[in-house]
Design a protein around this nucleic acid. Structure first.
Lengths: 243, 243
DNA sequence: AAAACTGTAATTGTCTGACATTAAAAAAGC
DNA sequence: GCTTTTTTAATGTCAGACAATTACAGTTTT
């Protein structure tokens, strides 16, 4: 591992970067044990708290895990899909909420990405995925559902569609796009008529998935995108007029 | 902010989670200043090093930035697109390299996602994006290029295509998919004939983008996917036979 | 009066040293 | 040979101190 001269950056940041580079370059493989904190401190010529801060940075990115006890230490972590999902969702959500990304832009990206699953999902979907989609459609049709519950069910429906493509990498990438939209969707209040239209489109999509007609799935998603965009435009216009 | 009982988890992890939740929920807005480390230590009833470890965890995710001096402290950071790109790429790259994701699966996901930009890029592409694509095609045609330089140019070409869609959220999501493939692509050695075929497909895609024909862009990407998959299959088969 | 300088206070960055906690391995006892 | 106890090595936490940095106010100089 490289050394850190007395540059302007934090020592802990430099050390974290040095170790991260080792992991990315493959010189530290999964489950390899890092030297103990005392050894690292000695190696980098810093104190143990500084090393610890560096290790915590890496732990925050799920790059390492730590274990106490005699044979404990810091180990290179095999980043799991669920962990990657979670990071992806957090980053995407904050990116959207902090950068004044318009609803249109986010919505366009989300549906563009989801359409990329249409053909694969139509081709590969299992009975389970289809059943999940039908179940969510049924849930959405119930009266007296809160807006938040409606949106949550919407997300579950779309995740079933994405997972139906049977490609974990695709599911991972889409997780951010679909979940990060939820806070934006929650800003909208859905009237009974709006919900009925959305549910009808969901039914059409589920039918297309069942028929394994990729083109129809994509068309259904496009129709849903148009519906969502016009609905959002109406809500935001009304809200702007009110204030 | 909530307190942390003496549960089994690390105190610094609990504190980091508590603060992260405040940020995600919007109770701590961008550029808001967190209490000083001493105040946080007092509030959570822990020592300052523990608080610092928590803050470093958040800094590693670009959720906060710190500043020294009299009016310094920790501030909620507006996560920028470049920062989000970098995190996305790191996570995606490690996810692929550590989880035995097959080349086919990763490649399928990557091209499926990229096709989602085809129509938008064809519609919106600027002259700049087109020029970038042409420039990369020209670079790829040069003889004596190393495999790595060829792959790097390939990535730049595809990023120009993605950016041509004019949707920053889409560019962000695709960054991970496109860049994370590079290490996998670098495992392949491209013969002159292979390169010529790929360049020809790139030319076809650039032509389609210039003609603003979204369907042709998507078709070109599909052809490129087929070419890449068969090429990779041949390389891996040859390598397997050799050993 | 304006500008340059200086000191002070607040805050993060780092170090030292210590103790608590944990969990595996070695040793002891039966 | 098995169970129990002790040892040991590692992380987790704490307390206190000092260094480095920066804004601000007050002072001096021009």
């Amino acid at each position: 591992m490289k050394i850190d001269p007395d540059s302007s950056a934090d020592l802990s940041a430099q050390i974290a970067t040095a170790i991260r580079d080792e992991i990315i370059a493959g010189r530290l493989i999964v489950d390899a044990r890092l030297p103990s904190e005392a050894e690292l401190a000695d190696h980098f010529n810093v104190s143990r708290p500084t090393v610890r801060e560096a290790l915590k940075r890496l732990a925050a990115q799920s790059l390492i895990r730590t274990q106490r006890g005699a044979t404990g230490g810091a180990f290179v972590n095999r980043i799991s899909f669920p962990e990657a999902y979670a990071q992806q969702i957090t980053t995407s959500t904050l990116l959207l909420s902090m950068n004044d990304v318009s609803f249109e832009t986010a919505c366009e990206a989300r549906f563009a990405l989801e359409r990329s699953c249409a053909a694969l999902c139509a081709h590969r979907r299992s009975a389970d995925h289809l059943a999940d989609m039908r179940a969510e459609v049924h849930r959405q049709s119930q009266l007296g559902l809160t807006d938040e519950a409606f949106c949550a069910s919407d997300v579950t429906f779309h995740r079933a569609l994405v997972d139906g493509a049977g490609n974990p990498v695709l599911s991972y990438q889409l997780a951010g796009a679909v979940e990060a939209m939820q806070p934006l969707m929650n800003m909208i209040t859905f009237s009974a008529r709006d919900r009925a239209r959305i549910v009808a489109l969901h039914v059409a999509i589920a039918d297309a998935v069942e028929a394994q007609d990729g083109g129809a799935v994509a068309a259904g998603l496009t129709a849903l995108e148009v519906e969502t965009q016009t609905l959002a435009a109406r809500v935001f216009a009304a809200r702007a007029a009110q204030s």
